[in-house]
Nucleic acid binder design. Sequence first.
DNA 1: TAATTACCCTGGGGGC
DNA 2: TGCCCCCAGGGTAATT
Length: 273
Amino acid sequence: MPELPEVEVTRRGVAPHLEGQTVSAVEFRHTGLRWPFPLALAQTLVGHTVRATGRRGKYLLIHFDHGTLIIHLGMSGHLRILPPGIEPKKHDHFDMAIGGQVLRMSDPRRFGAVLWHDAADGSVENHLLLRTLGVEPLEGRFDGQWLYRHTRGRSAAIKQVLLAGDIVVGVGNIYASESLFRARINPRTPAHRIGPERYERLAQAIREVLAAAIEQGGSTLKDFIAVNGQSGYFQQSYFVYARTGEPCRICNAPVRQIVQGQRSTFYCANCQK
DNA sequence: TAATTACCCTGGGGGC
DNA sequence: TGCCCCCAGGGTAATT
């Protein structure tokens, strides 16, 4: 399932095929994903040129002069760049013909989204879905102090506070478990009970885990296929995620699985206090 | 008012 | 073969 590294790997994969190229056609094969597709998107995009690509959290941004196409991959979505004329398959919901190729979005579980933000409505950062997002974890502003300051009023478990996305974005279920393991913090610890030193370890762990996943091409589990059709392989380096009962790679104690906020959490009770 | 919790959407995969 | 249940991200509504 795409998390921040997969979205960033996807962005880097599609960017050279989109930037500076002009849209020649847009096609939808479904009424919508999480939300209905934007009305008249073909009229909005055809004839316009992609100026740049970007990313905010797990939202992929395709910038035009007159607005931004916002794409979220949900939990099973992926983008591919294809030559024209390839027959769409069952879950291929959205095509954008551009520069002699086709950007195709596939999303079996349809939790993803394709949205349009018009430049007349101001910066895309003001979009309803983007304006409440926390800081980017790979940006300079994000560090242990940032985590410490923004968790003073938060009594919920640190794992769930990370997932909420209002303090730091892009730390999904997999990377939250992995980062907490590396920082040696028990995922059930109330966020406001963690001090500056441990938050510094956590911030560093989050940066390292995400950067390593991007470097390695993103995780795959079952659903992620990179833009060139190759799978990433970060899952080979998991310390705890999906390793219930297997020995901790540090101390050999069995990895535990608990449920927090209806999500599975994996941790080592011996290493994480 | 803000934080937290519960629920919901979908469909692949595993277990029986 | 077919049925049922679980799981996932994250928005929204309900509750604390």
